[in-house]
Design a protein around this nucleic acid. Sequence first.
DNA 1: TAGAGGATTGAT
DNA 2: TCAATCCTCTAC
Length: 195
Amino acid sequence: MSVLPDSFYLRKDVTLIARQLLGKKLVTNILGRRSGGIIVETEAYSFRERGCHAYDNKMTSRNKAMFEAGGVAYVYLCYGIHNLFNVVTNQNGIADAVLIRALEPSEGQTYMIERMKTQSAKRLTSGPGKLTKALGIDRSFNGRYLRSDELWIEDGIQVVRSHIVASVRIGIDYAGKDALLPWRFSINGNQWISK
DNA sequence: TAGAGGATTGAT
DNA sequence: TCAATCCTCTAC
């Protein structure tokens, strides 16, 4: 297993990176409690379209991590309840990011069950707000380097192109015609995709 | 500085 | 279908 290099994130095509993140493994190691899973669902966001927090290059205190050079995390609070985890991409000053929407757990399920306060190993990480909770990711990870000791993404499984499904993104009706962009990517038939 | 609303989720 | 829940952004 090898941790993804900065060059993976620094590329300009955010939808290509969103596709290539499928099959990669997101891992946290918090206080020695290591857990992680294979990425099975992503969404691309770019400053060029209205679905993005940094649309039109507008920087705020919330989204400023998106303007960093690719290879850091952008974590923010949604609906006052859920932490959502994004991978920042592209060069410094260009606000593109990929939202990680679902994982297939591959290690540390015991810790995930504990964090989720559930008895069941089912659907632990099948949604953007759930996977952050299961992995222990909160807003203290905002701006964190993705090759750090507590958080990283490494090589996982190969996903062939024909198994990748593109569809419209979730919950951005306010984005007008940009809401119709097919920038949500998932692994066809995977059990862990969000509903 | 007040008010509206959100890249969600789980219970009803 | 709806409430939970609070931060962020916008308008005044």
